[in-house]
Design a protein around this nucleic acid. Structure first.
Length: 484
RNA sequence: GGCGGCGUACCCAAGUGGUUAAGGGAGAGGUCUGCAAAACCUCGAUGCAGCGGUUCGAAUCCGCUCGCCGCCUCCA
C-alpha cells in the first residue's frame, strides 16, 4: 500500500511502526460554528482511509480531536451571550449530527483540548526546561530557532519566511517566527491555572499533547486539510520532536480544498456552504459519492450540478442492484444457461476485489475504485441481458455481489437496499406521498390495464407524475421511482 | 517576491514511460413497451493547454510559453 507523504512529497510504501497496527490522528474541528462542506471532505476522506486500513487487516487506533477552547470560541460566546463551554458543546453536537448523516464513523478516541490541560502544561514545562521555550508575562512561546528542522514539512526555510512576515510582530517574542504554547487570560476569559499564571493553551500544542498521550511519541499517520500544513502541522512537529527527540509522524496526509468559482471555500470569503444546507437538498450518500469521485488531494469545485449528477449515478446503481436482487430471488430454474465470455471479465475470479484493492492501495484512489464499481455494474447488466439461469450463474453473481459489498463497506457508499434508496429520495425530493399510497394507486392502475381501460391507467400515471413519481411497467409488475 | 500544484471528450474525472486513454453526467442510435417513461445495450477524445526536446516509444520525463489556483495570516 502506498501513501503520498507530504513530508517527502512522494508516494511511499506504508509500513506501520508495529506490524498489524496503525495509529492515526486526524485534526478535527474548532467547535465555534456549524461545519461546511470542506470539513465534510476531510472527515469523509479520512473516514475512508481508516475503513480501508481496517479492511486490509490492520488494527487501527483512530483519534480525532475537538478544539474546544480558542479565540474564535470566546468571541462566539460573546456574540451569542453564552458561556464558552456552552458554545463548544452546542457545535460539537451539531458536528456529530452532520457527520453521522454523512456516514462518518466516530473516532476511537475523541479528545478535547480542555480535558488535557495537565498534559499540555507538562509538555510546555518540558520544552522550557530543554531550552525550546520561554515565558514572558504569563505567555509561553516556542523558540523556533532552537529547532533546526523547522520548515521541513512545508518545504520552506526560515530566512525565506522572515521576509513574508506581514503581521505585526509581538515585541515580546525573541524571534518573529516564535509561536504561543500558552496564552495568559484577560479578566473574564476562561482560564486554567498554570505555573505561568492563569491562561489557556495555544492552538498547536493540544494536538502534540493529545497525540502523544493517546498514540505514543511516534505515530503512523497524521492527517488534516492542506491548509494545516503551515503553520499548524509544522509547529506540531517542532514541539513534539523538540520534546521527545523522536520523529513525530511517519506519514503526513493532507486533503485538497473545496473551491467555489475556483477559489478556496473559506469563512472569510463568505463563499462556503454548510453541510446542513446541502443535506437539505441532496441525499447524504450523493454528497459522499461526490466527495469520493475525485482523488482526495485534488481540488473539488463545488456546485449543485455535480451533486445532481451524483444522485443520477446512484439511481443507476440502485436500479442495477435491484435487477440483480430480482434475479437472485427467483426460484432456481431447472435449465442451466451461463452466457459465454463473462468468466474472464471483472465479474469473475474476484477480479473486482483485486482491482478495487489495487486502486485503494495506490494512495487511496477512490475515484478509480468507483470507476471499477461501474465497470462491474455495466458487465453485470450485460450478463443479465443474456437471460442467465441455473446454479452456476447464481453463484457467479453472488460472488460478484459479495465483492461489491466489501467495497461498499469501505467507501460507505452503495450499501443501502434499492428500496431504502427510493424512500430516501422520496424524502429528499419532498414528495408528499406515502409508499402505501403509491402502491395502492399502482394496484388500481394494474386493474385498469388488465381491463384495457388505458385511459384510466394513463390518468393514474400522469397524476402520480405531477407529484414527482414516475411509473415503469415491467414484465409482470410496475415499479415506481422518484423523478429527478 | 519565495515555495508548490493544476490544465485530459460538451461537463466532471482517473490514468504520471509501452496493449484499443477508466468511470460518471449529458447527447445520439437500438432493445423493451398497449402507449409511455425509465432502465439496459451500443456509440463517443488518432488525442491529453501550446511549442520544442529526451527516448525504440510520452498525456506521463525535461525546458520554455500561455492560462488558472493554493500556501507564506485564522482556516478542513
Amino acid at each position: 500500500m502506498k501513501i503520498y507523504n507530504t513530508l517527502t512529497g512522494k508516494k511511499e510504501t506504508f509500513v506501520p511502526l508495529v506490524e498489524g497496527r496503525a495509529g492515526m490522528y486526524v485534526c478535527g474541528v474548532t467547535v465555534y460554528d456549524v461545519c461546511h462542506i470542506g470539513h465534510a471532505r476531510s472527515a469523509v476522506v479520512f473516514d475512508v482511509v481508516r475503513r480501508y486500513l481496517r479492511y486490509r487487516g490492520l488494527d487501527v487506533e483512530f483519534v480525532k480531536n475537538f478544539t474546544d477552547i480558542d479565540d474564535k470560541i470566546i468571541n462566539r460566546a460573546r456574540e451569542e451571550g453564552a458561556s464558552w463551554d456552552a458554545v463548544a458543546g452546542k457545535y460539537t453536537g451539531k458536528y456529530y449530527e452532520d457527520m453521522h448523516r454523512l456516514g462518518v464513523e466516530d473516532a476511537d478516541v475523541e479528545p478535547r483540548a480542555t480535558e488535557h490541560i495537565k498534559e499540555i502544561i507538562e509538555m510546555v514545562e518540558g520544552l522550557i526546561e530543554k531550552g525550546h521555550a520561554y515565558s514572558v508575562d504569563g505567555d509561553v512561546y516556542f523558540s523556533v530557532p532552537s529547532f533546526p528542522d523547522y520548515g521541513k514539512l512545508s518545504g520552506r526555510k526560515l530566512e525565506e519566511m522572515l521576509a513574508g512576515a506581514r503581521v505585526e510582530v509581538d515585541p515580546r517574542k525573541k524571534d518573529p517566527m516564535d509561536f504561543a504554547l500558552w496564552k495568559s487570560s484577560r479578566e473574564g476569559e476562561p482560564s486554567w491555572q498554570s505555573p505561568w499564571g492563569p491562561g489557556r493553551p495555544g492552538w498547536h500544542i493540544e494536538c502534540s499533547a493529545m497525540s502523544m498521550k493517546h498514540l505514543g511519541q511516534t505515530i503512523d499517520i497524521h492527517a488534516g486539510g492542506a491548509d494545516l500544513i503551515f503553520p499548524h502541522h509544522e509547529n506540531e512537529i517542532a514541539q513534539s520532536e523538540a520534546y521527545n527527540g523522536k520523529p513525530f509522524v511517519r506519514y503526513w496526509m493532507h486533503n485538497g480544498f473545496i473551491t467555489v468559482n475556483k477559489e478556496k471555500m473559506s469563512k472569510s470569503l463568505g463563499n462556503f456552504f454548510t453541510i446542513r444546507e446541502i443535506l437539505d437538498l441532496f441525499d447524504p450518500e450523493a454528497v459522499r459519492l461526490f466527495l469520493l469521485q475525485t482523488h482526495y488531494r485534488s481540488p473539488i469545485e463545488f456546485s449543485n450540478e455535480p451533486l445532481e449528477e451524483a444522485t443520477h449515478t446512484l439511481v443507476r446503481y440502485y436500479q442495477s442492484l435491484e435487477r440483480l436482487e430480482e434475479f437472485l430471488s427467483l426460484p432456481e430454474g431447472k435449465k442451466e444457461n451461463f452466457p459465454p465470455g463473462f468468466e474472464d471479465g471483472i465479474l469473475g475470479a474476484q477480479r473486482f476485489q483485486k482491482r478495487f484493492m489495487q486502486a485503494m492501495d495506490d494512495d487511496f484512489n477512490t475515484a478509480l475504485a468507483i470507476g471499477h464499481v461501474f465497470e462491474l455494474v455495466k458487465e453485470m447488466n450485460r450478463f443479465l441481458d443474456q437471460n442467465p439461469a441455473g446454479e452456476k450463474a447464481r453463484e457467479f453473481l453472488l460472488k460478484a455481489k459479495e465483492g461489491l459489498f466489501e467495497a461498499a463497506g469501505v467507501l460507505n457508499v452503495f450499501n443501502r437496499t434499492p428500496s431504502e434508496w427510493q424512500r430516501a429520495l422520496l424524502k429528499i425530493k419532498k414528495i408528499g406521498l406515502e409508499v402505501a399510497e403509491i402502491e395502492r394507486l399502482i394496484g388500481e392502475r394494474r386493474a385498469a390495464r388488465a381491463g384495457k381501460d388505458f385511459k384510466r391507467a394513463d390518468g393514474i400515471r400522469s397524476g402520480l407524475e405531477e407529484k414527482g413519481i414516475a411509473l415503469e411497467d415491467k414484465k409482470d409488475s410496475t415499479a415506481w421511482r422518484v423523478k429527478l
